[in-house]
């Protein structure tokens, strides 16, 4: 951090310690940067930077390890919950989080996330849903909206062939194993504040060795949606949030002795 400090200056917005001093590679209008920052702020506030380990996905956020000042593993596509399981089981003192996109988590890594959640692995997943494969150039994802044009659904997503978009929070909240599942968004300041609170709850659950937590964050992809950044945030509001309702889907219940 290179902050200018003098007696007349009060710093009200500094770079979190959990962030490294790097410029991200994300496109203009992409909300990965916001979500990264909320995670970094949370790590600082909970004072867990020195025992936090992130697991990076394959996708746009594959290089997330460059932006954080914590240990990181770079996972094969979709397998971050399996890596996190291995890490957390052998080193339970670590605070482990996975950061995954919708192609990574909802498509190729669906089995790994469902079973990690069902085993109640005590780590935290930040699931960034922008309804498209970003890094590979805008292909259809399991979360792509009906009729949405992508490079592999040039006539719009046909739900007769491709099925309906997968609602991961709803799916995971059917599991009997206790967990914390919440869907949030970052397209308005108010929603960003809510997202911060959700991420903090998810990390606190882990510190308390309480349960598996997954926070789904509705995100944007102006580049591959073919929209301006402002149009993209509107698109989240009008197209995504009606189908992907925001809110808490599952909370850990008191332990039941079996």
């Amino acid at each position: 951090m290179n902050e200018v400090k003098d007696s007349a200056t009060t710093i009200t917005f500094a770079r979190p310690q959990a962030f490294s001093d790097m410029v991200t590679h994300y496109c203009p209008g992409c909300t990965h940067g916001i979500i990264h920052r909320l995670v970094a702020e949370t790590i600082d506030e909970l004072n867990i930077r020195e025992r936090t380990v992130g697991v990076a996905p394959v996708g746009c956020s594959v290089l997330i390890y460059n932006y954080f000042n914590v240990d990181f593993l770079e996972s094969p596509h979709g397998r971050a919950p399996a890596l996190a399981t291995g890490l957390k089981r052998v080193s339970p003192e670590l605070i482990v989080f996975t950061y995954q996109g919708d192609g990574d988590l909802a498509s190729i890594g669906l089995s790994e996330i469902v079973h990690a959640a069902n085993r109640g692995e005590k780590f935290t997943t930040i699931f960034v849903n922008n309804a498209i494969y970003g890094m590979t150039g805008g292909q259809m994802a399991p979360t792509t909206m009906p009729g949405q044009v992508t490079s592999t659904s040039p006539y719009g997503r046909n739900v007769e062939e491709a099925g309906w978009p997968m609602r991961i929070c709803e799916l995971l909240s059917t599991l009997r194993t206790p967990g914390y599942i919440e869907r949030v968004a970052v397209h308005t300041p108010q929603n960003i504040v809510r997202t911060k609170k959700a991420i903090r709850t998810a990390f606190q659950n882990q510190i308390d060795r309480r349960c598996f937590s997954l926070i789904e964050v509705l995100s944007t992809c102006p580049t591959n949606w073919g929209l301006t950044p402002c149009e993209a945030t509107n698109w989240v509001q009008t197209n995504m949030s009606p189908y992907y309702p925001l809110g808490v889907f599952k909370k850990p219940e008191p332990r039941i002795e079996v």
Binding site: V55, L73, P76, R79, A82, L83, G86, L87, R89
Partner: peptide
Amino acid sequence: NMLFGAAS
């Protein structure tokens, strides 16, 4: 992949 995470 669990081995990958644990071995690290």
